[in-house]
Write a protein that binds this DNA or RNA. Structure first.
Lengths: 209, 209
DNA sequence: CACTATATTCAACAAGTGTTGAATATGCAA
DNA sequence: TTGCATATTCAACACTTGTTGAATATAGTG
């Protein structure tokens, strides 16, 4: 707004790259596929974003800060008195549900990309540290407050399970659709989150309580 | 043994391909990288396994049947009388823990590859249906037996969370190592499974009980 | 208008891609 | 040994990859 209005084409590149990276991963997508679908010359991606890897980072970072700060606000909002376990979990999950509920397909793609990064050893090390790890540390600190007597390892492992369940949800593989014979839908984030919170809460209380 | 002894080199190709596919995914690996590390000519992979995609299938299928049948046996072993929830969950998880505990790095790589496939919409659809889905259906049937009054959707969503937690564990991203400051290790499957069973069981009882 | 910085396209490069057919090596039966 | 099937290598193909430098268009400013 004030400084620079990103050109229309450069944002189209980001959108298309987001979608294709989410679906096929970094190596499964060529710059020509991106520029073709964005109706743009091959060289333009390079002009705006540099190397292919830089473009990937640009895509990943674009929405990372929004998600991360939304998590921080929710976590701090309830941090006055002692937080309930459910409040803590919701602060972690709700921003993702809200992002999904915007209906913006860009968010859907980004969340799938995030899931992809989370589960890859290489990409996880390269990308998650920048913005997301700080939030996770706050999240874990809050959990320690809710379970003062729990062992740290127990809390970390439980968070690990949460992270996995979340990743598979964000990935929207469509597998649950098939396995349930259509009774459940990958795209139904409401259904996924509704049950995830009590599921996780009970697990935490069992292992850490 | 009886029919054909696969050549030493062809198995080396499979081993190397398994490792590289697990780490970088299908598109992140070239046949030349595989053949170089296997100290074999580029054309040999094609001679033994056909196209690159066929090689990927060969890698994925090689250990799939073992894992799947191991699950079936464990699930049937306890199916005489009414199975406890913990028994059902263990039948699903134990084969993976045992595979990991062989110490064979090939198994470690395969499980990471499996995690990768599980979380990718495209690969999941293409690969999981062949061997794994049948086992999941039996698993869910057993769960229905343990929770006769539960709604089907609840059971499917809870299984979905299990599947996600499992996938992230198999992936061994090393993220928990970093976040816990070394208190937890991705490679420590014992620690992961030990807590996973009570965590999951409590979640199921809360949502489906 | 002219000037300038930014945006976009064009054309091409060197390197790498999967795949293939012919040539050679290897092991095994008669 | 001779044959023969399998295994492996060699050399090359047509094509795609990311990236770049020069050329051209576009928009904003004086």
């Amino acid at each position: 707004m004030t400084k620079k209005d990103k050109s229309e084409k450069s944002e189209r590149i980001l959108d298309v790259a987001e979608e294709l990276f989410a679906l096929h991963g970094f190596d499964g997508v060529t710059i020509r596929q991106i520029s073709n679908r964005a109706k743009v010359d091959v060289a333009l991606a390079n002009y705006h974003f540099g190397k292919k890897l830089d473009l990937f980072h640009a895509v990943f970072d674009r929405r990372a800060e929004l998600l991360s700060s939304s998590r921080r606000e929710l976590l701090q909002a309830s941090s006055g008195k002692k937080q309930t376990l459910e409040q803590i979990i919701e602060a972690f999950l709700l921003p993702l549900k809200m992002a999904q509920q915007t209906g913006d397909p860009g968010w859907k793609n980004y969340l799938a990309l995030l899931a992809n990064v989370m589960i890859s050893p290489l990409w996880s090390k390269a990308m998650m540290g920048k913005v997301y790890d700080i939030r996770v540390e706050e999240f874990i600190t809050a959990l320690k407050g809710a379970f003062p007597k729990a062992k740290e390892e127990d809390i970390h492992w439980c968070y690990h399970y949460v992270s996995g369940a979340l990743a598979l949800t964000l990935a929207q593989t469509g597998r649950i659709d098939k396995l349930s014979g259509g009774k459940c839908l990958s795209s139904d984030f409401d259904a996924a989150y509704e049950r995830m919170i009590p599921f996780i809460a009970a697990g935490f209380r069992e292992v850490c309580g």
